[in-house]
Design a protein around this nucleic acid. Structure first.
Lengths: 104, 104
DNA sequence: AGACTATATGAGTATATAGTCATTCACTTG
DNA sequence: CAAGTGAATGACTATATACTCATATAGTCT
């Protein structure tokens, strides 16, 4: 049970970085190869590759080879649920801050 | 909209660390003061304080003063939903790995 | 085999993070 | 106001992270 915490942390950490979030957002509609991903998020190929690998070993993404290309996809649909919930929290908090700013 | 990503990443990063996960787990039943939290998770008071502050500014926790004591609580119930989903993913993945190990 | 394309990796750098120990700050109460 | 308690912070260390540039690897096609 000790590792459950580590494992959960690994997944959440994998999601908690802007470049990786951009990747997740881009993969929302389905699998994509690296050659599509790195231009879409405007990052270097090598940097993108490292982030993809990191998310793969965290259990967030899956990988499929097809000839020269390697396709990554979001491994669990629940990941998208998580993202949606977090987006909801953020939006709530932002409107909350506006309210505070107006009050000040 | 640029900041939405940063904000989401901040929240997820705040959740993606074992010590902080222990805190979240401990706060599941409601607010607790620092003096209850750090013994419960077996971490130093100062380290605990830093993590609490970090999660506070990430928008994950809320804080309430009462005399000498400071009570922290999970700010959004959705955070717990996120934790539940991630736990589900982990358990799925672990049974998946067992299957793989047995097959090997 | 040789040229080509897609992805991964080595090496390096700059910055961030988690943690510790000692101290300070904030508040309460005698 | 002095003593005491609970929480935050300064200073430091060790490690991890994100990123870049250059190179290596793996697969394809002629």
């Amino acid at each position: 049970m000790r590792d459950l915490i580590e494992y959960r942390a690994e997944i959440l950490k994998a999601l908690g970085q802007p470049t990786r979030l951009k990747i997740i957002d881009f993969l929302r509609d389905g699998e994509r190869c690296v050659c599509e991903i790195f231009p879409a998020i405007a990052e270097e190929q090598s940097n993108t590759s490292r982030h993809l690998n990191m998310m793969l070993s965290a259990g967030v993404l899956s990988r499929r080879k097809d000839g020269l290309k390697i396709y990554y996809a979001i491994k669990h649909p629940e990941i998208l649920e998580v993202m949606d919930i977090v987006t909801r929290i953020v939006k709530q908090d932002i409107t909350g801050r506006h309210r505070l700013l107006k009050a000040a």
